[in-house]
Each structure stands twice: as structure tokens, then as C-alpha cells.
């Protein structure tokens, strides 16, 4: 009895140890950004200080610089706008593409799916050279429209692939039933397949948005003017001057940009990803 109890406690303790260490490791960057944002420069640059706590009084000066002296808000707005447009374009094109590949094209559908995924593997560091010519020809250079135009080239293959998996997991009989019940195939797609795949669609939205916010090469090479920058390029370009790092401002910018995305992940992924189609079939 006693030995069993000890074993149980050990197992329980082990579990907690794993969970706590992972949580600490994952939360640490956020803590670091948060504390650096509010530290005075004198506190930051004194190597004798304990870096994990405030040694001097917290300050709002970095936030003031960030919002008043840089175009951070404008960059964040650019990013949000490009993100939203790219998400929209991606959904409009990849939802029907994925459905067609999953359901309608038979053997060739699968091969085309693989071919599309291969294009996703070509790195932007190679593609930005030819694409910059295309962007110039279209007269889109130095505007965010160049990115709205180019980003779907990697978000669509990825999203199509992801949605294909979702659509394949929906039993065909559901669509058959919807068609017998009086819908066209398109109607069945809109009224049945899309609502059932809502978890997959949310995943695509979040992933696409994340890819857009973290993309660097295209955003750096296609756009030069300060006011048209994306947040991922603007922040490191204008807050690192030569070898001077504006640590407080950098960390504040990172924190403010990453928090909404982190929250989005937590809100949606957990809730929707599991168990949504349970009960459709036995």
C-alpha cells in the first residue's frame, strides 16, 4: 500500500516537473520582453545588476519613444492590413482548391496536391530575386500591395494542403446526404463542408496571419519607405542604429506584436481542433 502511494506521488511529481519546466521555458521570453520594456537604460546596461528584476524604478520612456518617435503604429497597421487581405485571398482561393483536390479530381488530385506542396518548399531567399522583377513590372514596388500580391504564393499552397486533409476526413456520405436532401454540390460545400471544417479554417487563418507577420525577406527587399514598412522589418531596421540597440523599444514592439497572436492561438486552437466531427458517423 505505502509503496504504491509513494510511486503514485513520484509519478505525479514527475508530471508536474515536466509541465512546470516547459511552462517556465515558454513563458520566459514574454517575461523578458515585459521587464525590459519598462526598465530604465541605466538599469539595462549595468552588468552588476540582477537582470531578472527591476533594480531601478520602472519607466514608460521606451513606450513613449516607440509610439512617438517611430512609425511603429503605422507598421503594425500595415501588417494587420496585409495580413487580413492575404488571409482573405488565401481563403477564397484555397478553400475551393482544397475541396476540388480532395474530392473531385481522383488520382490526379493527390499528385497535384503534392506538386503544390513542393512549390512551398522553394525558399523565399531564392525567389525574391525573380519576384522583385515581377513586382517592378507591375509597378508595385515600395507599396504594401507588392506583399499582398506575393504572400499568397506561399500561404495558398500551405493552406490548400492543410484544408485538403480536413476535407478528406469528412465522410463523403455527409455530402451525399446533403445533395439528396436538396442541395447542389456547391451548396453542400458552403452549407455543410465549410461549417464542419471551421476548426481547419481557423487554423488556416491563424497560420496564414502568422506567416505574414514573421516574413522578412520579401518585406525587406520590396519596400524601402519608412511609412510603408511591415512591423517585422520596420522594428529591427529603425530601432537598431549601427551598433546601438534600442533594447527597451525593441522589446516593447515585440511584446505588443506577439501578444495578440499568442492569445489567438490559445483561444481558438484548443477549443476547435478536437472532437468536432464526433457523432456524424458511428
Amino acid at each position: 500500500m505505502a509503496r504504491g502511494r509513494v510511486r503514485e506521488l513520484l509519478v505525479e511529481g514527475g508530471r508536474w516537473a515536466v509541465v512546470v519546466s516547459f511552462s517556465v521555458a515558454l513563458a520566459f521570453p514574454f517575461y523578458w520582453m515585459l521587464i525590459t520594456t519598462f526598465k530604465q537604460d541605466a538599469d539595462l546596461y549595468n552588468t552588476a545588476n540582477n537582470p531578472f528584476i527591476f533594480n531601478l524604478k520602472p519607466t514608460l520612456v521606451h513606450l513613449q519613444v516607440l509610439f512617438r518617435d517611430t512609425m511603429y503604429l503605422r507598421w503594425a497597421g500595415n501588417t494587420a492590413l496585409v495580413g487580413a487581405l492575404v488571409v482573405l485571398i488565401t481563403l477564397v482561393l484555397s478553400l475551393p482548391a482544397a475541396y476540388a483536390l480532395a474530392r473531385l479530381t481522383g488520382k490526379w488530385g493527390e499528385r497535384m496536391g503534392i506538386a503544390m506542396f513542393l512549390t512551398y518548399l522553394v525558399p523565399p531567399t531564392l525567389l525574391f530575386i525573380p519576384l522583385s522583377r515581377v513586382v517592378a513590372l507591375l509597378g508595385l514596388q515600395d507599396t504594401i500591395w507588392s506583399l499582398v500580391f506575393v504572400y499568397p504564393s506561399f500561404t495558398i499552397p500551405f493552406s490548400t494542403w492543410l484544408l485538403m486533409g480536413f476535407f478528406k476526413s469528412i465522410p463523403r456520405e455527409l455530402e451525399d446526404a446533403a445533395m439528396v436532401d436538396g442541395l447542389t454540390r456547391f451548396g453542400a460545400f458552403v452549407r455543410l463542408v465549410v461549417p464542419i471544417s471551421i476548426s481547419g479554417i481557423l487554423t488556416v487563418v491563424i497560420f496564414t496571419f502568422t506567416l505574414v507577420t514573421q516574413e522578412f525577406v520579401y518585406a525587406l527587399t520590396f519596400i524601402a519607405p519608412e511609412r510603408n514598412q511591415m512591423v517585422g522589418v520596420g522594428v529591427p531596421t529603425f530601432l537598431i542604429r549601427g551598433d546601438v540597440y534600442f533594447w527597451g523599444e525593441l522589446m516593447a514592439a515585440c511584446l505588443i506584436t506577439s501578444l495578440p497572436i499568442a492569445l489567438l492561438y490559445n483561444l481558438f486552437l484548443d477549443r476547435f481542433i478536437a472532437g468536432f466531427t464526433v457523432g456524424a458517423i458511428k
Binding site: 445533395m179 436538396g182 456524424a280 458517423i281
Partner: peptide, 19 residues
Amino acid sequence: SPRERRIAMVFQSYALYPH
């Protein structure tokens, strides 16, 4: 098309709409 035939079908899996 199926919807123009005025039929009803019950499937092996019942195919109830899960949402």
C-alpha cells in the same frame, strides 16, 4: 441531380450533420 428526384435516403452511417 439527386435533389431533383424527390427521394430520401438513409445512409449506412446515418450521415447526420454533426454541427
